[in-house]
């Protein structure tokens, strides 16, 4: 599924990723942990094509296709979804309008038919119900004035509506209360399947109790410094990153 080879990237001329290599096969969930400022969000932006994140060497492919050559919206249409560490506010555009526009744009890019308004609304109600999101909130301008936790829930709502194939969750757990964390984890787990894969960026082992990873990686020094099973997350929780940070 996702294959990253020897990837280096700079932000404002500062090298952040330095020869990062990572494979996430279809059907698997990989967690990425690492100290603040290690470049975890940078990796998520490089994979989604954000301006200002400049790739200086290496490659990233999704099912063999060069991701880095595609525009951000083309990557999204291929099924790449990022749950933002800091979701943006979209003044004047109701959440439902935004998501329906996105869904139909993706479908159009894939040569699929548009989803009709009634069909879309029916599905939106179901998904909102399962994530315990007040439907009225979806009529408000997206994320404007939402609390930190509400914004994170909206990310998962969008993810469920768009049903992407490759998911990147960047600290989706931060800002969520304990009940919300469970609901969000259920929403994420519902999308697990043999044709999908996930990269879960987190600082806390707690999230990984709910979203069980196949592998845990440590991102430090601009590359994957260590890889292990779920037990690695426990070890990090106990001992921190001293071993990998010079």
């Amino acid at each position: 599924m996702l294959s990253i080879k020897n990837l280096s990237a700079t932000v404002a001329d500062k090298p952040i990723l330095k020869g990062l290599t990572l494979e996430v096969p279809a059907g698997e969930v990989h967690a990425i942990m690492g100290p603040n400022g290690a470049g975890k969000s940078t990796l998520s932006y490089v994979l989604t094509g954000r301006e200002g994140y400049v790739v200086t060497q290496g490659s990233a492919t999704l099912d063999g296709e060069d991701l880095l050559a595609l525009a951000p919206d083309e990557r999204a249409a291929r099924g790449v979804f990022l749950s933002f560490q800091y979701p943006l506010e979209i003044p004047g555009v109701p959440g439902l309008t935004f998501i329906r526009t996105a869904l139909n744009a993706q479908r159009k890019a894939r040569g699929e038919a548009e989803v009709s308004a009634p069909e879309f609304l029916k599905r939106a109600r179901e998904v909102a119900g399962s994530l315990k999101i007040d439907f009225e909130m979806l009529k408000r301008p997206l994320n404007v004035g939402f609390s930190g936790g509400e914004k994170k829930r909206m990310e998962i709502f969008q993810m469920a509506m768009l049903s992407p194939r490759f998911l990147i969750l960047d600290e989706t757990d931060s800002g969520l209360d304990i009940d919300a964390l469970k609901i969000v984890a259920e929403g994420v787990n519902a999308l697990r399947g043999p044709d999908r894969a996930m990269l879960v960026i987190t600082h806390y082992q707690r999230l990984l109790d709910y979203i069980k990873p196949d592998k845990v990686h440590v991102l430090a020094g601009g590359r994957i410094a260590a890889t292990g099973g779920p037990e690695l997350a426990h070890e990090l929780e106990a001992h921190g990153y001293d071993r990998w940070v010079a």
């Binding site: 525009a71 919206d73 999204a76 249409a77 933002f84 979209i90 004047g92 555009v93 526009t101 768009l162």
Partner: peptide
């Protein structure tokens, strides 16, 4: 940032710009 967010969701650049401008 809002423009990138919309594009990450799959909305092509021209359409995303029009959407944000229309909202404005």
């Amino acid at each position: 940032d809002a423009l990138f967010y919309a594009r990450q969701r799959g909305i092509p650049e021209a359409q995303a710009k029009a959407m944000l401008t229309e909202a404005f």
